[in-house]
Simulated scan of single mutants.
Amino acid sequence: MYLLLDIGNTREKAALFYGDKITALTEISAESVKHLPIYSVYFACVANDTRLSSLKVALALDHLPWHQVQSEVHAYGVTNCYAQPHLLGVDRWLALIGARQLLGKQSVMIVDAGTALTVDWLDESGAHQGGWIMPGLQLQQQSVVQQTAKVFNKETLNGRVEPGKDTIECLQNGCLAAVTGAIRQGWLLNKAERLILTGGDTFYLNAQLADLNVITEPLLIFHGLAQYIRQ
């Protein structure tokens, strides 16, 4: 059994890989993993070394081998389009590999809807066609509220792609329209056979994009990470 970690600057996501099956962990702590027969840890990290060292100690797993995955020129049928391949975010790199592993030789548009919303295109030969990075739903709303005096919001997101009738509706509906509009523009710009949605805001976006050829895969990055174990 392997522990898979996606280590961000503010939080970690985790999954277990065993018998060619990936299972998400809802909690990641020393208590939640202490009885698991973990051989080693495979991880992607955008945080600093101090945070990584602290996590090893906090999970009481610093005695195990830890294998860090980073973006490459080419791996597992995927070719990175960046002139400096290591500068492609490792989460995006793993999403590309995960999409290739799940869908095979299909062209795919990958949307990772988190704090930042990223879009990446992969053609049927496995060549990365480039991508976009933009503020995600929550970040867009926070930016407007923080930078204006009379716009306010609430924690619950109930946005719809229609005109709002009060300030909260106008803000939430506008940001949802901006994000889904960008995705639709991307689909028209470089149409693929499939569109994969992943990330924390997938729930809000899926219903708005139902007319496109959409599949959702919350564990997409972990599917990419698991390829480094399968080898």
Rank of each mutant, 00 (worst) to 15 (best):
S71D: 00
Y39S: 10
K105Q: 12
A24I: 12
E72H: 10
Q147P: 08
R92H: 09
A192D: 00
L102I: 09
G136P: 09
P37K: 01
M1N: 07
R230G: 04
A127R: 12
L197Q: 07
N80G: 01
E31C: 13
N9T: 06
P85G: 00
W187S: 01
L219Q: 03
V161T: 01
A116W: 13
A83W: 03
K34I: 13
L219A: 07
D91P: 01
D211E: 11
L205Y: 06
T202P: 03
V33K: 13
F203W: 08
H35K: 15
G114C: 06
E217D: 00
L59F: 15
T156Q: 10
E12A: 15
L171E: 02
R100H: 04
L55R: 04
V108N: 01
K21C: 06
V161C: 04
F152Q: 15
I196Y: 02
E31T: 13
Q185P: 13
G130D: 12
L137A: 04
G174L: 02
A127C: 12
V46A: 13
G186R: 05
A47R: 02
C170R: 07
R230P: 06
S125Y: 10
L220M: 00
L171I: 05
A182I: 14
G136E: 03
G181A: 08
L220T: 00
L88W: 13
H35A: 13
F152P: 06
V179L: 03
Q129A: 15
A178K: 05
G164C: 08
Q231S: 05
I183L: 11
I196W: 03
L171N: 00
I110M: 09
W121Q: 04
K21Q: 05
A47Y: 02
L96M: 02
V46C: 11
I38A: 14
L102D: 03
R230L: 07
Q84W: 07
H223R: 01
